[in-house]
Design a binder for these strands. Structure first.
Length: 456
RNA sequence: GAGGUUGUAGCUCAGUUGGUUAGAGCGCCGGAUUGUGGUUCCGGAGGUCGCGGGUUCGAGACCCGUCUCCCUCCCCA
């Protein structure tokens, strides 16, 4: 019995037209990365489990795809751990490898491993798929591409400014009409926890206020109570939820709030510098917004954090990023500060589809199709095709002498721009009938006219 | 990981309180048109109704399980 064709949930196939669209997105991102001096690297699809586990928090670890050991390695399963109900250890003994969850952690591993071959600050970009064992939803896949650019080996805030410019340039070039780059700093969040006297509950507090736009002030307060944050702390934090005014006005309010927190004030200062420098340079389409409720789950961030949201489209954030002061420390190389961003190519693809923002030229199919009139004519067409291909013209010869109707229909479906008709009359008179499939016009050309026709 | 929803032709979907041989549009193939597509007209092919089990004289429809799509939560790109 024939098997019903299917692919795993959360994955997609892409037809030629779709690949053309995605290539356009990748190329746009890549070209901007290059102009900022980033060079490409690649890393393996899967890493040692130990490289990935524990880097993304408890939630993240759960979403890492594990690769089951095979063959004799199965025998290395730590049955004792299972007996002790230590499932993480048991799982690690069963799966020594795992599919990468993002590109940042493998990059940190890469930097440490190749530190003697790199010059710092090291700027790299990387466009590769990542995998997450997440439940699929709108804009959420189990396999998707990230387009990352990171710099390690410098704590200069110039890079934060550059990354904001890159967000702006890429999304403007892709034609996205409106989007907001949300900006915050982990130091400010630390400061909030410190000032409210709950420094040890930093993560609980940031996770809760991150949800402000979703569950509202009451929801956040409720969640803070559930996390056993004290009432005095909650009443201290609450005013932050309805700050108004410009970025600078809200920063000023934060500055007052954080007056007693050294780290908090440091965060304000950094953010001010980044905003000021970005403002000096100007942005094309991006709206830049300081958002104190922006937290981001990845717990390796220590400084600036970014997220980009598209206006008027229901879609989670399409880009993210931030500064991590000691990610390479986990692999034994401390003192290297890094900052990076990631474009979610699959979400951008969905957004561009929804808004129909693809330029017409990327959808162009084959340039020229030679209609097939029989063996003698075809032999001549193959010669012309060979010459055209050497000039870089995409062309093909229809494989059989099928009815013209069928050949033209095929040309239509392939969105062919021209059809060349060479039957026995044309062959005898040494001319080529060239039909423009868009205008429907047909002209007779000599061989040299025909060859020159495709010169531009 | 928790909850909800969906699945019928290649695609988008109808299908009445359970009742003969499961339909439409689009697409595909053939013809009108043996050298000209996108329009029109005529004809045709194509379905174990997601999968497994159950109830019933009888199930696409009802019940249970399972997988999948989509949605909410969680988290994220």
């Amino acid at each position: 019995m024939a098997q019903k064709p299917a692919i795993p949930k959360g994955t997609r196939d892409f037809l030629p037209k779709e690949v053309a669209r995605r290539t356009y997105i990748f190329e746009t991102i890549k070209s901007v990365f290059k102009t900022y001096g980033f060079a490409p690297i690649e890393t393996p699809s899967f890493e040692l489990s130990s490289t990935l586990m524990g880097k993304y928090g408890e939630e993240g670890d759960r979403l890492i795809f594990r690769i089951l050991n095979s063959g004799e390695k199965m025998k290395k399963a730590d049955v004792a751990a299972l007996a002790e109900d230590n499932l993480p250890r048991f799982a690690n003994s069963l799966a020594e490898k795992a599919l990468r969850y993002d590109l940042t952690v493998p990059f940190a591993r890469f930097v440490v491993q190749h530190q003697n071959e790199l010059s710092f600050p090291f700027k790299r970009y990387q466009i590769q798929p990542v995998w997450r064992a997440d439940r699929p939803q709108h804009g959420r896949y189990q396999e998707f591409y990230q387009c990352d650019a990171d710099v390690v080996g410098s704590d200069s805030l110039l890079y934060e400014v550059e990354f904001i410019q890159i967000f702006d340039q890429v999304l403007t070039r892709l034609g996205i009409p409106g989007f907001t780059i949300k900006l915050n700093n982990r130091k400010i969040l630390s400061g909030i926890a410190e000032v409210s006297g709950e420094a040890d509950k930093l993560i609980a507090i940031t996770v809760a206020i991150d949800k402000l736009d979703k569950i509202g002030v009451e929801g956040v307060v409720k969640e803070l109570r559930e996390k056993e944050v004290s009432e005095t702390a909650i009443s201290k934090i609450s005013p932050l939820f309805d700050m108004t005014g410009s970025n600078e006005e809200r920063l000023a309010q934060m500055e007052v709030f954080l007056a007693q927190s050294e780290i908090g004030l440091k965060g304000i200062e950094e953010l001010r510098e980044v905003l000021h420098n970005t403002h000096q340079l100007g942005l094309e389409r991006a709206n830049l917004a300081f958002d104190v409720t922006l937290a981001r789950g990845l717990n390796y961030y220590t400084g600036a954090i970014f997220e980009v949201a598209v206006h008027d489209v229901k879609m989670g954030s399409i880009c993210g990023g931030g500064r991590y002061d000691d990610l390479t420390g986990l692999f034994g190389l401390s003192g290297l500060s890094g900052v990076g961003i990631s474009f979610g190519a699959d979400r951008i693809y969905d957004v561009l589809n929804e808004l129909a923002l693809y330029p017409a030229e990327i959808e162009k199919g084959l340039t020229l199709l030679f209609a097939n009139f029989g063996t003698n004519e075809t032999a001549y067409c193959m010669q012309l095709a060979k010459a055209l291909r050497q000039k870089g013209v995409a062309c093909e010869v229809y494989p059989t002498a099928a009815k013209m109707q069928k050949q033209f229909k095929y040309a239509d479906n392939r969105t062919v721009q021209y059809v060349a008709l060479i039957g026995d009359n044309e062959l005898k008179d040494k001319i080529i009938q060239l039909k423009n499939m868009i205008s429907g016009e047909q002209i007779a050309l000599t061989e040299s006219e025909f060859m020159n026709y495709f010169n531009h």
